[in-house]
């Protein structure tokens, strides 16, 4: 038995190592490519080369930080709205079984809808409301997928919060809404933190909605990155540098949420 267990151990380590290489290799390649000259980039397997800072200079002067700022703004506003509405929605679904299983199903079903179905109605709407090429349009679009995910994510945390604590607060003299704010929310604070970071990453990474709703002056970071695909061809070096600017914050965020995310998912009701 022992021997079999240890061979399982080795196998699982091999699988993890292999998966890690598959995930990490492209990132490494992007990192190297961001320091390559145009001619060096013609050989994708080249590992030793004389590094250049040209790509980074080009990226830094392209207004990428303004775009990053816009992405962060969109992310923060989207998440703030999602957390406020999502926590109340999730609480209601968890405690009062609002809409029974139809609500839960509906939230998930909305995720299955391809963005292409929604984006043109959004565009039409934004145009009529004179909101095209503004961040408001992007935030509204992002809410359409961040809010359901945040809500779904939080349901599990509310399920896990003991009902008695809330009832205790009612007996102790609070009304329902005060009990929710002062007693229930603190219990799910870790879940809200994880949901917030998760929602932020979703918004931060979105290209599709942002590209169609705000392709011009209000371009977010992914749109700016896509902009290196010019009519003269792909500026691969610069694009790689820009990709890194976009990836690093996500990596840092993932590092902080990974444990909570795993706990949330393994906790039961949270599935994507």
């Amino acid at each position: 038995m022992r021997k079999r267990e240890s061979s399982w151990g080795i196998l699982s380590k091999l699988i993890i190592t292999f998966s890690f290489i598959i995930v990490a290799a492209p990132l490494l390649w992007v990192l190297l490519a961001s320091f390559k000259t145009g001619s060096d980039l013609n050989d994708p397997t080249l590992v030793t080369f004389t590094p250049t800072s040209e790509n980074w200079k080009k990226v830094f002067s392209s207004g990428i930080f303004q775009s990053a700022g816009r992405s962060a703004f969109v992310g923060v506003i989207t998440v703030a709205i999602s957390i406020v509405l999502g926590s109340m929605g999730a609480y209601s679904i968890s405690r009062y079984k609002t809409g029974k299983s139809l609500t839960r199903f509906g939230i998930l079903a909305a995720q299955v809808l391809p963005p292409a179905v929604l984006v043109f109605p959004f565009l039409d709407l934004a145009y009529r409301l004179r909101l095209s090429d503004t961040l408001v349009a992007v935030i509204a679009a992002h809410l359409s997928f961040v809010l359901p995910v945040v809500t779904w994510f939080l349901i599990g945390f509310f399920d896990a919060a003991p009902k008695e604590v809330e009832e205790q607060a009612l007996v102790d003299g609070l009304d329902r809404f005060a009990a929710f704010r002062k007693v229930v929310l603190p219990q799910v604070a870790p879940g809200m933190g994880a949901a917030a970071i998760f929602g932020f990453v979703l918004s931060w990474n979105d290209l599709f909605y942002a590209l169609i709703l705000a392709p011009g002056n209000a371009a977010t970071l992914p749109v700016r990155i896509a902009g290196f695909n010019t009519f003269r061809g792909v500026e691969l070096g610069a694009m790689c540098a820009a990709i890194l600017v976009s990836v690093v914050p996500v990596l840092i965020a993932s590092f902080f949420i990974q444990r909570r995310l795993v706990r949330g998912i393994s906790g039961g009701a949270v599935k994507f």
Partner: peptide
């Protein structure tokens, strides 16, 4: 409402405010 009944209660799992 419970808050207007002038009662206090102790639950089986104590229901302390953890925060």
């Amino acid at each position: 409402e419970p808050k207007d009944r002038d009662i206090s209660m102790v639950f089986q799992n104590y229901a302390l405010y953890a925060h």
